[in-house]
Design a protein around this nucleic acid. Structure first.
Lengths: 150, 150
DNA sequence: ATTAATTAAGACTAAAATGTCTTTTTTGTA
DNA sequence: TACAAAAAAGACATTTTAGTCTTAATTAAT
């Protein structure tokens, strides 16, 4: 459903949001290590997110990436739109061009509620809210975070 | 989640299963037209399915593809395994390598039930049963089928 | 001012997915 | 037996995704 690029991007933003209290900019290297993603590939993605103003950055020593107040008001859905676009979320699971409630494919009524739920997870919460929730509920975005709590 | 190839393959098998009563072999051309898929690409897929004994075929005039008794006992899941393999169904929605019930990613508990449901749709029914159900419930696998009923 | 650390930009490469085209093989039928 | 219709096989082409590498620009600290 999501490309690797988009998965990396989402987890990066969540990572930045989870460390926003620390008031320190974070470099690609650290993010890539924490999330176990290919560094130069992630760098390009972060640039793209920065250009779309979903992430903030500053160059030079002690530079890096961070989320400002405005960035935190965006949603995961904004990230998806920026990296993958929305088409995969609109397509029928079996590729039927006209699939919908009126002429459903065999799995339409299994897939539709899931799509609705994931869409509301992604679209109806700000990054900030999203992260508060995952902290509260104990969700993880990297193996390192998980290990740190043992 | 599924590749185009796999979507075509699933719909082809369902198409053959829905026309099994007619006792006639069906050529690639007809199937590709009915399902609106690229013909030579579908041909290759049908060959692959035939080699894996998920579909039967015969060459020469009035030849074509069909499902025998044994073919009808297979499941959609067998088709998925043949074309895509199972890896995409095992991966975390956000790409987290260790995602699971114990260290869930932020959408794990949204995705897991869906996976379970779609898996049981695909794995726990034979093609035959699957098709009986979709006929009963009025599900579609091509625009043409839908139009035919208007 | 110089240096070093960092992002920015963009050319480049590799792999996988998607799809086409041509030739061969098989087989029913005239 | 010859022909035509179909699948089988496999080489080829295109597009997308994934990822690397090099160079430039910026900036904080010395």
């Amino acid at each position: 459903m999501l490309s690797n690029a988009c998965k990396y991007a989402i987890r990066s933003i969540l990572y930045l949001a989870m460390h926003v209290e620390e008031k320190e900019k974070i470099g690609v290297k650290k993010i890539a290590e924490a999330l176990e993603t290919p560094q130069p590939f992630l760098a390009k993605l972060l640039q793209q997110l920065t250009k779309s103003r979903l992430v903030s950055s500053s160059k030079g020593p002690h530079g890096g990436f961070f989320l400002n107040e405005k960035n935190l008001k965006n949603s995961i859905w904004d990230v998806v739109k920026c990296i993958d676009g929305t088409s995969k979320f609109e397509q029928c699971f079996l590729g039927l061009s006209t699939c919908g409630d009126e002429n459903p494919c065999p799995v339409h009524f299994t897939v539709a509620p899931f799509k609705k739920k994931i869409l509301s997870d992604f679209r109806d919460k700000s990054i900030e809210e999203f992260v508060n929730e995952i902290k509260l509920k104990g969700r993880y975005i990297s193996l390192k975070d998980f290990d740190a709590l043992k």
